[in-house]
Design a binder for these strands. Structure first.
Length: 425
RNA sequence: GGAGAGAUGGCAGAGCGGUCGAAUGCGGCGGUCUUGAAAACCGUUGGGGGCAACUCCCGGGGGUUCGAAUCCCUCUCUCUCCGCCA
């Protein structure tokens, strides 16, 4: 959520920036916000004046009562009745205006950073880096779902039986590989200074709102009706919400957390060719990084986080590339996002395994996540997060890129201490 | 699932319908003292809105009243005990 002060003072800049981000209604929305905001302040001025008068009147009535001047007190009472009605009607006006402002504010996406390239869709993203790992086979590459079936390490049909499509069962070395990757990712995050947390996997609506999933992506989350809880679509939600309504000391920044959680996504409306194998699941595992930083540092930190994720991919010996997302492909809450994609050798395409974003104050404004600056004033902190990493597509890429002529799969050296086996099959 | 209790400032914990943004203790910060530290003592210490005067916030919402942290209704949450279960 953008700060109302920013819209007030830089309306035109905001409109121009939002227009870059496909938000076609930005100009009207901003104009409406400004109008409502002005109305709100007008009401407020009047209301507070009346309240002030009422407070004084009430005080003097109290004094009259105590000194036994009953008649005078009664007189004063009846005089304040009119003001009371005015206050009530102004309060009703305010109660209509404030949610209207809020609705408009909440529906505006974040403003893209100046370094974010213009673009309408995924094809406009900029490939800003690609490592030099080339994977070539002198035998036909087998897709990961076939390798998984061959070695009996992932069972989709079993998942369908237990739950439904998109909930595979990992078996044997498949299950161990999952556990190994989680351990590996968490250990690396720990070495990079992130402290590990294990948050709840279900969250309340306030948390969903805080990080921006609600109301924007309500339909993408599983909802537990009896308790009004949502299954988390990413650990970003519970971990960032740890700091909701907090005022941190400036020297407590940066706050660095990491956590492993399963993630649950309904993926409503995204059926098609992309869903095969591990490409798109309703439940998957992910290690997430979250940082809360001083505004001056957030873009530097964004680069650091990307570098960390890339070091993981390098250790796994995977071909990958880094994309700078264009304005049109960025998420609602992000000011700047890098995606990391790994090559899927058999499918012959890139798979997104990480998304690292700087939200600037977009989340912290909703979360009321602040720090106290040197002048002792509260300031909104910047929040960032990134996957490090999402497992299924990593597994897909590992299987496909490290497959051998005999159909076995080599485990990269960095992972062997965690798997305690060197190959599958 | 059954029964009960409660929700107040960073924490603990007072609070009579008016003088309560709120006692007191702890913690935090600043200072005095000290070679330094501790102790002691003194001072200070919530958040939001508004250019400002000012105003709002004692779990959320509504009501009674000239006036509500205090009374009433309602919702939510937390805790304790019992039952069930890991």
């Amino acid at each position: 959520m953008l700060e109302i002060q920013r819209i007030r003072t830089q309306a035109e800049e905001v409109v121009v920036a939002l227009t870059r981000k496909r938000a076609g209604h930005a100009r009207e929305a901003v104009a409406q916000i400004l109008e409502l905001d002005e109305k709100r302040r007008k009401i407020l001025t009047e209301l507070e004046k009346l309240r002030s008068e009422m407070n004084l009147a009430a005080k003097s009535i109290g004094q009259l009562m105590q000194s036994g001047k009953k008649e005078e007190a009664e007189l004063a009472k009846s005089a304040s009745t009119q003001a009371k009605e005015q206050i009530k009607s102004l309060e009703e006006e305010l109660a209509a205006v404030e949610p209207a402002i809020q609705d408009q504010l909440v529906s505006l996406p974040n403003v893209p950073h100046t370094s974010v390239p213009d673009g309408r869709e995924a094809s406009d993203n900029l490939t800003v880096y690609q490592n030099d790992i080339q994977v070539t086979f002198d035998f036909p590459a087998i897709p990961h779902w076939e390798l998984a079936r061959k070695h009996d390490i992932i069972d989709w049909e079993l998942g369908v039986k237990i739950t439904g499509a998109g909930f595979p069962v990992y078996k044997g070395k498949g299950a161990q590989l999952q556990r190994a990757l989680i351990g590996f990712f968490l250990d690396r995050a720990g070495e990079a200074g992130y402290s590990e947390v294990q948050p709840p996997l279900v969250v309340n609506a306030a948390s969903g709102f805080g990080t921006g999933q609600l109301p924007d992506k309500e339909g993408q989350m599983y909802f537990i009706n009896e308790d009004n809880f949502y299954l988390i679509p990413t650990a970003e939600v519970p971990i960032t919400n740890i700091y909701r309504d907090e005022i941190l000391a400036e020297d407590a920044l940066p706050v660095k957390n990491c956590g492993y959680t399963p993630c649950f996504r309904r993926e409503a409306g995204s059926y098609g060719k992309d869903v095969k194998g591990l490409n798109r699941l309703h439940q998957f595992d992910k290690v997430e990084l979250v940082q809360i930083v001083h505004p001056e540092q957030s873009y530097e930190v964004l680069e650091q986080m990307v570098a960390h994720v890339e070091s993981l991919l390098t250790a796994l010996e995977l071909p990958f590339r880094r994309l700078l997302l264009c304005t049109g492909d960025m998420s609602f809450a992000s000011a700047k996002t890098y995606d990391l994609e790994v090559w899927s050798a058999a499918q012959g395409r890139w798979l997104e395994v990480s998304s690292v974003s700087n939200f600037e104050t977009f989340q912290s404004n909703r979360l009321k996540l602040r720090y106290r600056d040197k002048e002792k004033k509260t300031q909104l902190a910047h929040t960032l997060n990134g996957s490090a990493l999402a497992l299924p597509r990593i597994v897909a890429s590992l299987l496909e890129n490290h497959q051998q002529a005999d159909g076995s799969v080599r485990i990269p050296a960095a992972l062997v201490p965690y798997t305690r086996f060197e190959r599958i099959g």
